[in-house]
């Protein structure tokens, strides 16, 4: 964390309102982007965003500067995402993602969800044009909404936000092997859900 940033946080901790509003403008996109990636709904993301910054405002004195500020911030937004989530009917039961065979149909498959006998059809090229079209966005939204929340958060922190397994583990209070195992399952799950769309 740059010194000026820590100084900004300290000023906000001392009750400097302008320092706090600057802190909000530094991190508002990170929090909103993350909340949206988790819930795939702008209204819900906006509520999560507000709850998060209200928490930050009230708990800022608890931040001691020993961890990165973003680690602390992610911890708060993750908690709010969990509380905010609607009991989605789309989300599959966590049981089925833990059990081998939870990712795929019942034909002879190995534990990575691949048909042992079948061939694997190649995926079409991913779009390189600047604008991702809405049909594809819809497919991505619907696939990730079926992924249980705890796996979804690991996938987003690691693969989309680019955090290390160690930092992800600190945020979620998980061991590094647990982070890795959830990440693998999350990827396989999403891959299976995108497969029909990407092979036709």
């Amino acid at each position: 964390m740059p010194l000026s940033e820590l100084e900004l946080i300290r000023q906000a901790q001392r009750g400097d309102e302008r320092a706090f509003t600057r802190l909000v403008s530094h991190y508002e996109s990170l929090v909103y982007g993350f909340a949206f990636k988790v819930c795939r709904d702008k209204e819900l993301a906006s509520e999560t965003w507000q709850d998060t910054f209200v928490n930050v405002y009230r708990k800022l004195h608890q931040f001691d500067g020993r961890s990165k500020f973003t680690t602390w911030l992610y911890t708060i937004v993750v908690n709010n995402c969990r509380m905010k989530r609607r009991k989605s009917k789309l989300e599959v039961a966590s049981v089925s993602i833990e059990a081998p065979g939870g990712f795929h149909d019942t034909r002879g498959t190995d534990d990575e969800g691949r048909g042992a006998q079948t061939t694997i059809p190649p995926w079409k090229e991913t779009p390189l044009d600047a604008v991702m079209h809405s049909e594809l966005k819809g497919v991505l939204d619907s696939a990730i909404q079926k992924l249980p929340m705890d796996y979804r958060i690991v996938f987003i922190l690691r693969d989309v936000e680019g955090l290390s397994a160690e930092e992800t583990g600190r945020i979620l209070k998980l061991s590094v092997p647990a982070v890795k195992s959830r990440l693998r399952r999350a990827r396989v799950f999403l891959r299976e859900r995108l497969n029909p769309y990407m092979t036709t």
């Binding site: 996109s29 909103y32 982007g33 949206f36 990636k37 702008k42 993301a45 694997i120 190649p122 995926w123 991913t126 779009p127 991702m132 594809l136 966005k137 991505l140 990730i144 996938f155 987003i156 693969d159 989309v160 990827r187 396989v188 999403l190 891959r191 995108l194 497969n195 990407m198």
Partner: peptide, 16 residues
């Protein structure tokens, strides 16, 4: 390839 593309697509999804 399909796993890499899965990750890539979610990375490319634009932030609001």
């Amino acid at each position: 390839d399909s796993l890499k593309k899965t990750v890539f697509l979610y990375q490319r999804y634009p932030d609001p």
